[in-house]
Design a binder for these strands. Structure first.
Lengths: 123, 123
DNA sequence: CGGCATCCTTTCCGATACTG
DNA sequence: CAGTATCGGAAAGGATGCCG
């Protein structure tokens, strides 16, 4: 069955697709695998300052479960594990690229910055 | 000072830029303002099924604070408020478009789905 | 109609400790 | 090296009620 993508039906798919990109570190991780790059677990720890092992492992495993990232284990004495994008994960590259370009533009754009405000528990 | 964008320095900017897109509904909202579309508060409530007024208002206000979305109030008796992308918000369109295309592709790609698993606090 | 305030539950996420 | 397990705090998010 061929699906017709109106802006509306697409919105549902987008919501769905977006779920696998949500999470504080998912995109960051993806960016480090961007152009075919391969990274080891410890590489991420060095590259992404501030991430905990827990989050790294968790996000990595979710990306893996979503089929975006491939995990390759080398059965060595000091364990070695590599991560790379799957073919399906690579289909994200154009979007990643666009996002990257936008982020760069951002620098030249005089925009305001917002700081934390959610539940207005300020009284 | 001209900034040189190596993949590494760019990563910092990306992290920074990404922050204003984080949130369960931010992208969804942006998608509904995609090609110059203008939406009222109540439109979003209809378009984005499952969102609460709280989240809608909060995300909208953050997008506004980040300068991505413009809010226009009509001083009528039944209040009327419109939301649209700012010029700066429109610079996101290419990225939004790429993401949209990716989400559509997704449909034709046989990939697995993952469900909730985070802290194994299941006792 | 278009919110804001409050309460409460769920989920996220960081720190720490332990393992093959 | 590459994780897993557990705890506890913080933040996100939902439900409800009220207001201009």
């Amino acid at each position: 069955m061929r699906k017709i993508y109106t802006p509306d039906t697409a919105a549902s798919d987008v919501e769905d697709a977006l779920k696998m990109l949500e999470g504080r570190w998912k995109l960051i991780i993806l960016f480090h695998l961007f152009d075919g790059k391969v990274q080891r677990y410890s590489d991420f720890e060095k590259l992404i300052s501030g991430i905990s092992q827990k989050m790294l492992a968790q996000q990595l495993r979710q990306l893996e479960a979503d089929g975006l990232v491939a995990r390759k284990v080398y059965p060595l004495v000091p364990p070695k594990v590599e991560y790379r994008l799957t073919p399906w994960g690579q289909t994200l590259c154009p979007a990643l690229d666009a996002l990257l370009k936008w982020a760069e533009q951002k620098d030249g754009f005089g925009n305001s910055v917002r700081q934390g405000d959610q539940d207005g528990a300020t009284t």
